[in-house]
Design a protein around this nucleic acid. Sequence first.
DNA 1: GTGAAAGCGCTAACAG
DNA 2: CTGTTAGCGCTTTCAC
Lengths: 331, 331
Amino acid sequence: MVSIKDVAKKAQVSTATVSHVINETRFVADETKQKVYLAMKDLNYQPNRIARSLRSRKSNTIGLLVPLVAEDTSNFFFMSIANGIEKVLKENGYNLILSNSNEDEVTEKNQIRVFNTQLIDGLVIAPVNGEDSAYNKELTGDYPVVYIDRHPSGVEGDIVLVDNLRGSYEGVRALLNKGYERIGFITGTLGITTSDERLKGYKQALKEKAIPVRKEFIKEGPATFEQGYQLAKELHEAEVTALFVANNVMTMGAVSYLNEHQVKIPEEIGIIGYDDYDWMKITSPPLSVVRQPAFEIGKVAVEQLLKRINGSKEKFAEVMLDAELVQRGSF
Amino acid sequence: MVSIKDVAKKAQVSTATVSHVINETRFVADETKQKVYLAMKDLNYQPNRIARSLRSRKSNTIGLLVPLVAEDTSNFFFMSIANGIEKVLKENGYNLILSNSNEDEVTEKNQIRVFNTQLIDGLVIAPVNGEDSAYNKELTGDYPVVYIDRHPSGVEGDIVLVDNLRGSYEGVRALLNKGYERIGFITGTLGITTSDERLKGYKQALKEKAIPVRKEFIKEGPATFEQGYQLAKELHEAEVTALFVANNVMTMGAVSYLNEHQVKIPEEIGIIGYDDYDWMKITSPPLSVVRQPAFEIGKVAVEQLLKRINGSKEKFAEVMLDAELVQRGSF
DNA sequence: GTGAAAGCGCTAACAG
DNA sequence: CTGTTAGCGCTTTCAC
């Protein structure tokens, strides 16, 4: 491995000068600069980031901690977010360390601990569970943190959310306006803020039209394809006329049930799903969905993070991005 | 920040002892150990990985470089691979740095250079383009490399592939056995090994049944939803009776076209897509596909990489994983 | 305009 | 069984 010393020797200057040439951190005479550039090229020198990090206490790396569940199909939503983050980061010369909490609190804490020893300059985290407010204690790391997607209760910090309440509210309201009244609601496990808020939106829309909220029309379960299938079945048997499904995986399960039992969409059942991916277009009719700006979440979150890293002391910001109802033909 | 010195002082031992307690790298008396543990806990000490890496020339981090294209829907296949990698890595106490070449050669080289300065212990890469064999020169890093998914020509190294030829061969053969003869083939841009091999499989299956390969039945274009849609249109107009689509994004586009124009599947057109995700089940009828073991690719690749990192000097291995035809109702 | 040298936090000889 | 200490490759203060 060729080090800064080798370059200094070859260029007949001090290591300090080489360093300053590389980082443009003090004036160096043109002639000297050229010698250094030449030496670097000749030796094919690459500065060692680890050493640089150790000394300067800056790694140009940020961590991302997401809660993915299963092996394959689980959560495209977070992958889209990761994509947005990666893009902004690259534009700013930062690297991304990706980590997965598996939607499990213990794993999450462990991963945060790993990050604490790792010298990251900042962390973007989609917290496992809205209930646990132990983040501040855990995050003793002296790096800034931006929370995304879920709002951990009692945590102070920058946070980027999607307006979940309004997302499902608009969806359900659209169903109501079309004349549907027996509207079933399928959601992943309640207790995390996203699910809870989407349920609130559902209730609010009904209430506004003075339609009673019926417990038996609200179905909750782990966010899997199979559960989506099962809960759609139950609601179909309960003779709902429309279905609002509050996440993408369960949306697929529900559609699968309807197809398999030749329930006509939208004649027999209208349906609105959650999240917008290309595959929402390949059902017949194409699915109407509430679209979350996943890529945007990542982008906004990391922009905020970079601001903090660069020393911003503004008070904590809570950005609320809009969800959007994408009308296709399914209701 | 609390350092090993602080711990040493508090525990009244030398830093060497602390280090050895942490790493279990030489015998330390039980009593001493306890003192050290206590001190570490009291001070909430976390070893600094950066310093450790600098000294020991080992980062416990591996890099992953994948070619993702668009913003959202692009490539779930690589995300699944990333998932597999992440899992194995975590089990082994390693971290993952994720990077994206955007399917662009220049970006790829830059990212590799970044990795070179980064002290990663190994790299998993899905190379951008099978043609360019400059990897060896570029990868001057002294870490092991495992290639996945695509075979860069003229590169020596460990590699994990899927049997693409056989995958499409089996698919097309199944179509032929069902009696389809006018079989259209839709593929992403040719010139990368995966596409080329899938095309070969198509041709081979036809040849075996003595069915002439007709140029006008083979459609190539960038792997996008829109292209899939467009090429399906062209083939439909060319009156094919079946469609084999060689990647997941174009599969969605093709299905979308067929739905939109009420082309009955499989009565008017049989179809087999590529890659197996839950959303292949929500068309009616559910789609038959060639399934690639994405998660497995990641797993196998990183296992091989870890072997190398741990000093394995076996000669380079080329692992070829099987693709599998998943029969549903679309042909 | 540039250089000398300290030191980031750790590991690993070497020494006892 | 444990301690002393050099040094990983870099940045940065102080000095000239």
